[in-house]
């Protein structure tokens, strides 16, 4: 409930347009390196298939780091728009970051233990 209030305050402080603009900028900066990293890991898998589990963990880490950087850049973007902002929204971003990390980890583990044995028939 407290978080919802903070999100509302954030929207009041910056406006929906600026929030979306900040997120888009952060997303654009993160996307290209992320895609290149994932492409590189996939090509790594084709040569080092016997290190497949390690490679899946590398993808999980890459996704987690990318989302961390995404939220960091989003926050930076908002701070740059209004340097005198008093609202502490650093912690606000922590929860979605953790949720995303857990979801990615679960999906990765499902991939390792269930999908890999099915795919490599």
């Amino acid at each position: 409930m407290k978080e919802l209030t903070t999100w509302k305050e954030l929207r009041t402080e910056f406006g929906t347009k600026n929030l979306i603009d900040g997120f888009t900028g952060a997303f654009a900066l993160v996307l290209l390196p992320l895609l290149l990293t994932i492409a590189a890991i996939i090509e790594f898998i084709t040569v080092f298939l016997y290190l497949l589990t390690l490679s899946v963990f590398l993808i999980i880490i890459a996704l987690f780091v990318s989302v961390f950087v995404l939220f960091h850049l989003w926050r930076r973007s908002l701070m740059l728009m209004n340097e005198e902002v008093t609202l502490d929204f650093k912690k606000l971003f922590l929860k979605p970051l953790l949720i995303f990390g857990i979801v990615v980890l679960i999906l990765g583990l499902i991939f390792i233990f269930f999908l890999i044995p099915i795919l490599f028939v």
Binding site: D21, G22, T24, G25, A26, A28, L29, L32, P33, L36, L73, R76, S77, L80, M81
Partner: peptide, 20 residues
């Protein structure tokens, strides 16, 4: 977005060539 691009302009310019 523009604020972010301006703030990280030097880093972005330095990384363009390695990324390409």
């Amino acid at each position: 977005m523009n604020e972010l691009l301006r703030y990280y302009k030097k880093i972005i310019l330095a990384l363009i060539l390695p990324i390409v």
